[in-house]
């Protein structure tokens, strides 16, 4: 009984935190009394009733920036998760269904991409593409597409041998219909779990890239950018500059991971 409660507790806690973030992203910016990029003379203010999270070197309110960043970071993470899921699943379904040469060439390619940590791949691609929100999304998405390709392909290999695949073909469905309408939906459960994990990784990667000065750059209000700003003051003790945006980032990633774990337990897959 306790075990069951704990199991769902993971999923519930993750969802609750994520809901909180979505709420902040949705209505938060309108509630703020400062502008995220507006400079003021009150630089390096400690947290106070006036500036709950303090101010940075341009006197910008950190709370305001954290709230605006929530909107941006969540948008990026979710876009990455959804797009890499869709693209990866479709590719995986197609190569898994047809098999043969296309499959072996593509999977070798996927193996090659896997030889490279996703973060580094995203880093190189962003570095070459240049800095913009669209480019970060593209880079991180490309880095995670192979995960879904591999997953869906594996599922497809088992699903396509089942009887309803033959049934769908025999009543005259074209291949694309068989793949997309009849088979793909039956392969998606593990990918959904993966999607939650990828959202968590993507948010860390995006912020990590921004921290390195890639992708989203100053003065945009983004968690990684803010932490990077704070890192410059690490030896002088202005801890609030990096602590709050980092806490928000980690909490968001934690929520996605909890949801992923919770879903895995719920659907009892490993």
């Amino acid at each position: 009984m306790l075990r069951m409660l704990l199991r769902h507790f993971t999923l519930l806690l993750g969802s609750a935190i994520l809901m909180g973030f979505i709420a902040v992203a949705w209505v938060g910016p309108d509630q703020m009394k400062y502008e995220p990029e507006k400079v003021s003379r009150n630089t390096y203010e400690k947290p106070s009733p006036e500036y709950r999270f303090g101010t940075d070197k341009f006197g910008r309110d950190i709370l305001t920036r954290v709230v605006y960043a929530t909107r941006l970071d969540l948008r990026i993470a979710m876009t990455v998760a959804v797009v890499s899921f869709v693209v990866g699943s479709v590719i995986g379904a197609i190569v898994g269904y047809y098999g043969g040469r296309l499959d072996s060439i593509l999977m070798r390619g996927v193996d090659i991409l896997f030889a490279f940590p996703a973060f580094l791949l995203a880093m190189v691609i962003t570095g070459v593409l240049g800095d913009s929100e669209k480019n970060v999304i593209t880079a991180v998405t490309i880095a995670y597409i192979p995960y879904f390709v591999r997953l869906t392909r594996g599922q497809m290999l088992t699903v396509r041998t089942l009887q309803y695949a033959d049934a769908a073909i025999s009543i005259g469905n074209p291949s694309w219909r068989v793949i997309l309408i009849h088979l793909l939906p039956n392969t998606l459960t593990p990918s959904l779990i993966q999607m939650s994990m990828v959202a968590g990784w993507a948010i860390l990667d995006t912020a990590g890239l921004a921290f390195l000065g890639l992708g989203i750059t100053s003065p945009t209000a983004e968690w990684g950018v803010m932490i990077s700003d704070g890192a410059q003051r690490i030896t002088t003790g202005e801890w609030w500059m990096w602590l709050y945006p980092g806490a928000a980032l980690v909490l968001a990633a934690f929520a996605f991971n909890l949801i992923g774990d919770g879903l895995r337990n719920l659907l009892r897959l490993q």
Binding site: G200, G208, G237, L243, G246, V250
Partner: peptide, 28 residues
């Protein structure tokens, strides 16, 4: 349960943020 929570949390910690915390505490 505690160890698994630690592992899930560890998977969510942004390395650069953790590094800053460590530097702040151990150095500053």
């Amino acid at each position: 349960w505690a160890i698994r929570l630690f592992a899930t949390f560890g998977a969510s910690v942004a390395l650069f943020w953790l590094a800053l915390i460590c530097i702040h505490l151990f150095y500053y």
